[in-house]
Design a protein around this nucleic acid. Structure first.
Lengths: 207, 207, 207, 207
DNA sequence: TATGAATGAGTGTTCATTCAT
DNA sequence: GATGAATGAACACTCATTCAT
């Protein structure tokens, strides 16, 4: 799933390509993936119908380009290094809050992604692969805590990481994509507490 | 979303309607909701194209009929009454195992349901509504345990029930619908332990 | 276009057939010929779908039966013999008023007939044939008046009869079938005056 | 009922659109509105099936475009200004002849229009509206003649205009659309004489 | 690069009519 | 006579993609 077809060389090309991605995001978020028409995208971008294909191979590709652009914003790696925090409870708390916050911010697109993943094989694979990386990291963290005697050592680290991540992302989906009413703060607090309890972490050090 | 259009009045009609539902399930599971053609369903049922419409209003309706039939099998209410078990840890364990088992058994259909829920407003609503009932029941249970001093009283019962259910159903989806490799027994054990930890239940009474 | 298929022998048959015609008229008038469904007719008559075909060969036939029934009411022949009136002006006046009155009374059906005549070859022919009889009679009357020196002898009797009949029936259609607002009395008066003028009849004898 | 969907921007587009209208007229006149298939139209125009929808929203719209094109030819307004004739008898004579002539010339299409008006609400309204303009003009003329003492002042001008127009258009329909045999010249003469008599016009000035 | 016209495959649904009970 | 289930032909319309200017 290469995102680019033609890398625009001219300034005009760069402008057009950017306009198309912006327009595509609008249209996709407004109409959903299946109901979005390529012609609406070109219309919204102010170009002719055929011009979309100058930059993207098709619907799937332009959607991928939209997603790509957003993914960058949503990656918050190396929380520990960034913040210097080491207390696992507070790290988890921070990570979950960052996740919920950016999910909320891009809720429409996340809903879209969920939709497309159900319809398009490639995106389903892409998503699995992305979350796999995330889960592996968490599993490593859990194993570390277990070895340090700080977490319930009877838990399978991989499955636990998977399950707790699934819990958080699914709740984010319900709250923000499906707009099931849930106060943000209470949601965050509850999820964090559930993580901490589930892992049997010791209470956070007094800050 | 009424499921029936015509209720068959003759033995032949009952047979035909049943054949259609069976055929529809096969075709939907084979091709997915969007790619399934009504003509394939009638073909598989051995009836004329138009005959599907004798009993169902359209694609959506016959899919609903398929789902309906499966939902009945999947409902396992009143576990406590059925089994006489009262220990919360064992009740949770049993409920989760039953859920995972029947999810696995109907994995293709559950995947389908997930797909359709992303595409069809009505089914999305239907699913939310169904899980709401389930969650309410769990929330009540949690509140009961909190009041008895048997569970972490700092947790929001509603959100907790929601989150833990989401965790289980999402893992079932990943394991059985998406066929991510996970040993059944370890999955069940881990999820149960996570529930127990999350709620801070006392260890199960020795049986 | 034979109207009957089976002449019912049993009392029950007679009842069913009559119920079907009544139901058919309702449905046709409500939905129009093209949009009326045979199943709606059987439903309205309280019989099974197939039963319509016990008495009628199809949609066309049952419509013919409905029309037939109404045509009987609408025939007002032998006005002169019935009333004893001989003054042509008063005869024309009476004939036109009777026509307008019964058109108004059966307006929905007349509209229907107009519709079906546009769609079905057979009904178009039927209508032409029926009006031909009527026009011939009028032409004969006109010729009589011309020979008696009572009407403009430069007029072609056939075409005149045709044209004046067309004028009246078309106005009836506009007023009653299409419900273009027109006061009944003024319409009748105007049409009669136009007939009289057109034929150059002497003023009516003082009554 | 806007006629255009896309206005062609290229020469090729203009050609295609025109070819479609020509083809549509052929097909409609050959098969009637209801039996005409969109695929036959595209076939006759030598374009792909979908191309009809580049320029027209559907069957109704392309029919409207056909009608539109013909209506232009059929409008003959401002007869008095065009010819300089003022004698009412001769003006009426001319107007009727022009009407009959162009009706005859476009007989198939007029028959079609009659059919569609019975089937499609929008076209029915369109026709009523068009003839309303025509009738209003005639009513004004009649009132003028009455005020000048040149026409029977006991007639209702509106209804008279309506009725006499209806007479002419209905006869044109019978003669040319339904092909009831009638010599053109005698039809024209008779209708004119009926108009003149009906209005009680003085004999035409010797020419 | 951009245009915009042309392509054409693909299918859910209706309903008059038939016919086995 | 009545039933009601089954039939199956028939067709307008959409839209992603291509390609000649």
């Amino acid at each position: 799933m290469p995102v680019e077809r033609t890398i625009p060389r001219s300034a005009r090309g760069i402008r057009t390509r950017a306009a198309l991605i912006t327009a595509a995001r609008e249209v996709f978020e407004r109409d959903g993936y299946l109901d979005a028409r390529m012609s609406d995208i070109s219309l919204a971008a102010g170009v002719a119908a055929g011009s979309v294909y100058t930059y993207f191979d098709g619907k799937e590709e332009i959607f991928a380009a939209v997603v790509d652009q957003v993914q960058e914003e949503m990656l918050h790696p190396r929380l520990r290094e960034r913040t210097g925090i080491t207390d696992p409870r507070r790290l988890i708390d921070l990570a979950n809050r960052e996740y919920l916050r950016s999910y909320k911010k891009n809720a429409r697109l996340m809903a879209l992604l969920e939709q497309v993943a159900q319809v398009d094989e490639n995106f389903r694979a892409l998503r699995l692969q992305r979350s796999a990386a995330f889960i592996t990291r968490n599993a490593r963290m859990i194993r570390g805590l277990q070895e340090a005697g700080l977490a319930d050592s009877s838990l399978d680290p991989e499955l636990t990481a998977h399950a707790l991540s699934a819990m958080v992302s699914r709740m984010a989906y319900l709250a923000f994509a499906l707009e099931q009413p849930m106060p943000f703060e209470r949601l965050a607090t509850t999820l964090n507490q559930l993580w901490a309890n589930a892992l049997q972490l010791a209470p956070a050090a007094a800050s």
